[in-house]
């Protein structure tokens, strides 16, 4: 049985070259892609997430690790797809209509990706109708809405309402975030949750899809 500690360590240290070598080596040794993912790459990234939450890592270190992870994933992807292995979940993220602030949304996307979620980024100033359309097209499990202004957060309600009107609200979980937003507001507009920061957004996304890796 392969010891995945070294591969995990590559991800933790963000060593892209070694991550590529070891992932390939594991495959060459006949290890299944799903096992390499579940026992090497994802646990390595989980340690990175923990180090970030504990204040040991900053986002830049996390991004370096995420790149090493992506190198490994790139090698495994064709094999995973061939064996119909799915990502944790698909998350559609975007900044609501009228708002152009997106650094918070981008951070959430980075951290979700690092936790094995597939991200579809709708961008900024996204209308409720476009969110509905993109959710359908992508088959997203979760919608993450961002707004920074009191004058644009009302578009979050419009977006939730648009999913209701479309009849697809029960097919997607909606979480919201941004400076003026609160848990109360999330409840008031019928969203499924409010995340005050990117780390909590990841935990919430895991909870919303009913489990964690």
């Amino acid at each position: 049985m392969t010891n995945y500690n070294e591969l995990q360590e590559c991800i933790i240290k963000g060593n892209r070259i070694k991550a590529r070598e070891l992932t390939q080596e594991c495959l060459d040794n006949g290890n299944p892609a799903k096992e390499i993912l579940d026992e090497g790459l994802i646990p390595g990234m989980a340690v990175v997430g923990k180090k970030f939450q504990d204040g040991e890592y900053f986002i830049p270190e996390m991004l370096v690790s995420a790149r090493a992870l992506n190198i490994g994933l790139g090698i495994l992807k064709p094999l995973l797809e061939a064996s119909d292995v799915k990502p944790v979940a698909k998350v559609l993220v975007g900044t609501v209509k009228g708002d152009i602030h997106d650094i918070g949304k981008n951070l959430v996307a980075i951290m979700l990706r690092g936790s094995g979620f597939e991200i579809i980024d709708a961008g900024v100033d996204v209308s409720p109708e476009k969110f509905v359309q993109m959710a359908k097209e992508s088959g997203a499990d979760i919608l993450g809405l961002s707004a920074l202004l009191t004058t644009t957060m009302t578009a979050m309600k419009d977006t939730v309402d648009a999913f209701q009107a479309d009849g697809s609200r029960d097919k997607i979980k909606i979480m919201i975030g941004g400076a003026p937003v609160t848990t109360d507001y999330a409840e008031k507009i019928g969203a499924d949750g409010y995340a005050p920061n990117a780390a909590i957004a990841v935990e919430m996304a895991k909870t919303l899809v009913g489990g964690s890796r």
Partner: peptide, 8 residues
Amino acid sequence: FTLPVMQV
């Protein structure tokens, strides 16, 4: 100052 939560 800025507006409270409202449609703009």
